[in-house]
């Protein structure tokens, strides 16, 4: 028992590390007092691209503008906006580029369905190719060929 105990602090530390959630850039002073609203704000800010760093969400980004947008998002939520209204508020100012999940629209159809189209095209191509390679059913042997085959098989056995 005493031999195991020295490892206990290490395991406790490991357990705590596993429990820790990934760090976000949100500062305590930005957070909303209502945990439910704060959870919504975090959820929504993960969907919004930071226009300064571009490949980070405003939840991840340390850019000053990302902080401003997090605060604006929280103000909208505290003011009673629905999720969609809050997102639209930001999109109206920065364009749909800020949506990390682009909406399905006329100009995003290629983005959403292009890969599927390529897959279907490739599938059809592969199907046609494989079908063209399958040999036609072998024709029946003629009597002469039959006799020759029998001869060959016989000599085979004799070896």
């Amino acid at each position: 028992m005493r031999r195991v105990l020295p490892l206990a602090p290490a395991f406790a530390l490991l357990a705590l590390l596993l429990l820790a959630s990934p760090a976000a850039a949100v500062n305590p002073d930005e957070q909303l007092p209502d945990p439910a609203q704060e959870a919504r704000a975090v959820e929504l800010s993960r969907e919004l691209r930071c226009v300064v760093c571009q490949n980070q969400s405003i939840d991840d980004s340390d850019a000053a503008l990302a902080r401003d947008l997090r605060i604006i998002l929280r103000e909208r939520i505290a003011a009673g906006d629905t999720d969609k209204q809050a997102i639209d508020h930001i999109v109206a100012r920065y364009g749909s580029f800020v949506q990390l999940r682009p909406p399905v629209r006329g100009d995003t159809l290629a983005l959403w369905f292009g890969p599927l189209g390529v897959l279907v095209l490739g599938g059809v191509g592969a199907y046609l190719y494989i079908r063209s390679r399958t040999p036609a059913a072998a024709a029946a042997l003629t009597a002469a060929e039959e006799a020759e085959a029998a001869e060959l098989l016989k000599t085979d056995k004799a070896d």
């Binding site: 226009v51 300064v52 000053a64 503008l65 401003d68 947008l69 604006i72 100012r93 920065y94």
Partner: peptide, 13 residues
């Protein structure tokens, strides 16, 4: 001073 006016019309920097 806060940047809020610019943000109203999409200033990023």
């Amino acid at each position: 001073p806060t940047g809020r006016t610019g943000i109203e019309f999409g200033v990023a920097g």
